[in-house]
Design a protein around this nucleic acid. Sequence first.
DNA 1: CTGGTTAACGCAAAGGTTTCCGCAATGCTT
DNA 2: AAGCATTGCGGAAACCTTTGCGTTAACCAG
Lengths: 339, 339
Amino acid sequence: MSKRLVSLKDMAKELGVSISTVSRALKNHPDISPEMTARIQQLACEREYSPNPLAMGLLKQQTKMIGVIVPDLVTHFYSSIISGIESIAKQHGYYILISSSNESFEKETESVQNLLNTRVEGLIVCLSQETSSFEHFEPLLRNEIPLVFFDRVCMTDQVSSVVANNVEAARSITCHFYENGCRRIAYIAGPGHLNISKERLDGYWQGLKDCGLKIDPDLLEGCNLSAGEAIKATARLLDSGAKPDAIFGINDTVAFAAMKEIKRRGLQIPDDIALVGFTDEFHATVVDPPLTSITHPTFEMGQEAARLFFRQVENPGAPPVQAILKTRLVIRKSSVRKD
Amino acid sequence: MSKRLVSLKDMAKELGVSISTVSRALKNHPDISPEMTARIQQLACEREYSPNPLAMGLLKQQTKMIGVIVPDLVTHFYSSIISGIESIAKQHGYYILISSSNESFEKETESVQNLLNTRVEGLIVCLSQETSSFEHFEPLLRNEIPLVFFDRVCMTDQVSSVVANNVEAARSITCHFYENGCRRIAYIAGPGHLNISKERLDGYWQGLKDCGLKIDPDLLEGCNLSAGEAIKATARLLDSGAKPDAIFGINDTVAFAAMKEIKRRGLQIPDDIALVGFTDEFHATVVDPPLTSITHPTFEMGQEAARLFFRQVENPGAPPVQAILKTRLVIRKSSVRKD
DNA sequence: CTGGTTAACGCAAAGGTTTCCGCAATGCTT
DNA sequence: AAGCATTGCGGAAACCTTTGCGTTAACCAG
């Protein structure tokens, strides 16, 4: 096991003074004589003293840790958001404790429990796909423990959150399809209880309406957000009599899965089926054809979530706010028809 | 601020008993009468007592935290490894504290310091691209603080590490090119001080030798591992008189950058230039053409690193070991010529 | 010479947990 | 009935830091 780092007590004994003297000397407290201060600071320097955060945490009742729960760690969307959270946390001298729910409600509940037991000062959370009841967050509300949701959110009247402007984004996608000559625009949605799914569906409908198209239930498919299910949903869409000429996928995974299935059938993108995703910058540019998509400002979303978090830490009673981030429709080849 | 969770003292006062009695009752210590034990356990249950990890950490001198330093958080390679580390850590009841160096030596040094100050029990590290001196790890060695390197490693005689079988993998790539008719096989390397760069270069040379090809310095290009530099390196390769008919990129970023540049020039993959990367599963399948590559078992690499870590925790004096993980050459269209 | 100020430091408590040791009361043995 | 072991619990130290307050000695003014 590692040798203990030096403590105030160690240095106090070595110099034959009291612990409090050492403590104060290190903070340049005026009560301590300049000579003593100098001796102590020099020793501290030699011994590479650094305060024990556990002792501080115990005393001050704060751990300087934020718990972060995400559906998974490996997709770029989340890791990029985490990166954003970390950047702000670092500025505040906080560390983040990451826990992934693997899209499981049970694991999410467990993570909330574990993180609270670890005495994080609060939580920043993106709901799992399965999560449709929210009691596991009640203890946080009761005890006024800072809590922020991002992307997949709930209880927005009580909890601060960061989301994308999903409705408008989905609307603009639909119109973009229309402008490129598509008339049978399909949407592959996610679980109905997720805000992102509902809001993007709303936007999709609004877009149809704005373009004078009718809502056709056959052009609406659902899936959980796994690649396998998304492929099946795409297949159903293509096999049914719906004859879509455009598909809008609710997120990265779905869009790429759709692309795979469309290509597998030898259909051309965008000429047979135009495709647009809802994703972040990186992936979209490496696939072929490059994917038109709504890009999330993911890093900024993480930063904003962290900022809202610290707002609550510094300002306990503050009412919840909802930050809505602008997205951008980035047009690439997957949706642009030559004619 | 959040209300304090219930402590042993709180419950002791409520029941009119001593703290030690409560503590013992919760552990079913035989000294405590069954009735008292029952009363205490029931109260603990109602109040949702959970031990304060700060107090425990202070007492036991362990924080149950592992510091993890990676060059960045957002590439799939690292996030997948982190996921692997986390899975093993969770099993041991440990949390991980993640810090990204952003490929900067200075930030890496800083992270080591900060994490040690946070009293993590040890570190799992992937060196930054810039790191070529290693004094910042000396304090860990001196104090026998557990340390494990993965992928980009150093001081392997003193520190346990996990790496891929880079030499053999690079050799097999080279031979694969040869079998597909390529004769002017180029390699885009990384910074020369990194083990991964050196080992893959060795393998590349071995492969050339095995196939009876000569080493041509014009077919060797270097870059730092950024996309921008990789594109430039590819351009130099294509502009020079070297006339490569195959390119082997040292890692994900480089391979994708090369692909972009090759396509931009209107060259065909694999017919004009065959391309192979050194990457992990996910990306390679979504690009066009699908990228032949050496796939890392990234998740397993993380798991193995964590296992080596706990081996050191449980077994302080143990000599360092090096785990070498097998990779797989997954052949896709980017390297297979029809004729 | 005395009362008071001040500089410079020590004491102790608090934060939460575990564990060794001690103590009282009870039950048993002889 | 005296002596002893056992049962059941409390006290206190240790882990480390901060901080309000108490203490000491020196010094100065009256």
